[in-house]
Design a protein around this nucleic acid. Structure first.
Length: 426
RNA sequence: GGUGGGGUACCGAAGUGGCCAACCGGGGCAGACUGUAAAUCUGCUGUCUCUGACUUCCUUGGUUCGAAUCCAAGCCCCACCA
């Protein structure tokens, strides 16, 4: 199977700037390939996995990988797929984010491979010293208005009813296009990868290179589809919150659970996209899903593979242990340190002991910050959705020292999976 | 700049003097059923000292026994024209 066929079978191909047969042939020889990452957060998100996996496939096949972090473009904001303008990041934020992103990427891409190391570049490096006039003279002159205005991302914003596009955002495609030009000149990079929403930005680059250096220059773009779940929701969000790779932002447990909760209809496709499991194994899991859907074998394999890749054996083990405790039932035999470890990243609060003992559970729910207001707490309690130390609580009552695990912890839970740890301080 | 329309809870959207903490839909939160699935059904969704009280319907003043609803001024948004 050729690399291109592999990518196709893994749902990682949407479109390319040349025809597919040509692309298939191109990928047979080692190329230098790049894809961009927005440094909008201090770490990457599950939504970045598709890009990462595609790059990883290419690196495994012997291509040289460049991960471009958009230090400069991140300060501008990509208008693609957005109805409104992004909040601009500060310079310090972007620099902080770079470090985290490299760390995340290194879980999937080899940056220190002696034969074929991946590269990490930051486009801030080649834009930072530009001042306005040289930029306009040297780079601005390379672009033509008509194609820029014709871009889908621009048209959508210009015709949008509210909130029009700023010049700053409009300039984004110049930077993005010039990135490709720069990487071609510097690293002989000839292929750019991106999500299908990046089409306009990718062609801005290939067009630029063709126009300035000649149509014979073999630069191309390859896009992969944006991943949505069977309900049409964009992949990588859980209840509106992004799933981050950084355990401080998304706990091992939440990360693992996110994949474990994958819909049946998505599980097999996700295995193809997000893991390197061979097709035979995936077929087995598909059969397992069909025969015993309640076992959720594919989901378990998926969650395990990704948690291990991102968080290592240690993170996986914590996530699994936590899952067992949280879905197994009682907290029998668990000590406060156990709970602290399992719930390390779960929302928590510390209150003085005298603010807990003798106070009603209702007051505690609100005063700890677990529930937004006392009314909300009351509704939760009346609706039968509250558990204390994994035991359903039906009505209000005052707390006694007996409720404290190891004399210092309270485990509150709303519904089935929303936990909150309350510590008593002396 | 001119003319017209509009600002109601997380979003959309009713309500145009008392029956309004405000119909309805979406979303969200719980409950039942389940496989930590989907679908479905049920309840809740301003705050509190919670069978009642309090603060809300852009802002500020006013009319009135009583205003989200009427009046005035201001702020903001939209459409068409220039």
């Amino acid at each position: 199977m050729t690399l291109f066929q592999t990518l196709k079978s893994r749902h990682l191909v949407e479109a390319c700037t040349c025809d597919e047969a040509q692309m298939e042939k191109l990928l047979e020889k080692p190329l230098t390939v790049y894809a961009g990452f927005d440094p909008t957060a201090e770490c990457l998100q599950a939504g970045n996995f598709v890009t990462i996996m595609t790059l990883a496939h290419l690196q495994r096949a012997g291509h040289r990988i460049i991960a471009l972090v958009g230090g400069a473009t991140g300060m501008i904001g990509d208008p693609s797929g957005r109805a409104t303008e992004r909040t601009l990041l500060t310079e310090e934020q972007v620099h902080r984010n770079l470090e985290g992103i490299k760390e995340n990427l290194s879980r999937f891409l080899k940056f220190d491979d002696p034969l074929n190391p991946a590269l990490l570049v930051n486009n801030y490096d080649w834009y930072k010293d530009y001042t306005l006039i040289p930029f306009l003279r040297q780079i601005g002159t390379l672009f033509r208005m008509k194609p820029m205005l014709a871009k889908d991302s621009v048209q959508k914003r210009l015709t949008a009813e509210q909130d029009s596009m700023t010049f700053t955002e409009f300039t984004y495609q110049i930077l993005q296009g010039y990135d490709f030009y720069h990487l071609y000149k510097t690293y002989a990079c000839t292929l750019q990868l991106g999500g299908s929403d990046q089409w306009g930005n990718i062609t801005a680059g290939t067009d630029l290179i063709h126009r300035t250096l000649g149509n014979h220059i073999p630069v191309n773009g390859l896009t992969f589809p944006l991943v949505c779940d069977a309900n049409g929701q964009k992949f990588g969000k859980s209840a509106g919150n992004a799933i981050y790779l950084n355990p401080e932002k998304t706990s091992y447990y939440d990360f693992y659970q996110f994949f474990l909760r994958t819909l049946d209809a998505d599980a097999i496709r996700y295995l193809r996209i997000f893991t390197f499991l061979p097709e035979e194994r995936i077929q087995e899991l598909a059969a397992s899903l069909a025969a015993h859907p309640e076992q959720r074998e594919p989901q378990k394999v998926l969650a395990e593979a990704l948690t291990r890749a991102v968080h290592g054996e240690k993170g996986l083990s914590i996530a699994q242990k936590a899952s067992a405790v949280l879905f197994g039932g009682t907290l029998e035999g668990l000590t406060a340190p156990d709970l602290e470890a399992i719930f390390a990243n779960i929302p928590s609060a510390t209150l003085p002991r005298q603010a807990i003992i003798g106070h009603s559970i209702l007051d505690i729910l609100a005063s700890s910050g677990f529930q937004k207001s006392k009314s909300e707490a009351r509704r939760l309690l009346q609706g039968g959705g509250l558990s204390l130390n994994n035991q359903r609580v039906g009505e209000d009552f005052p707390l006694t020292p007996a409720h404290l695990i190891d004399n210092r912890l309270l485990l509150l839970r709303s519904g089935k999976k929303s936990y909150f740890l309350l510590r008593a301080a002396d």
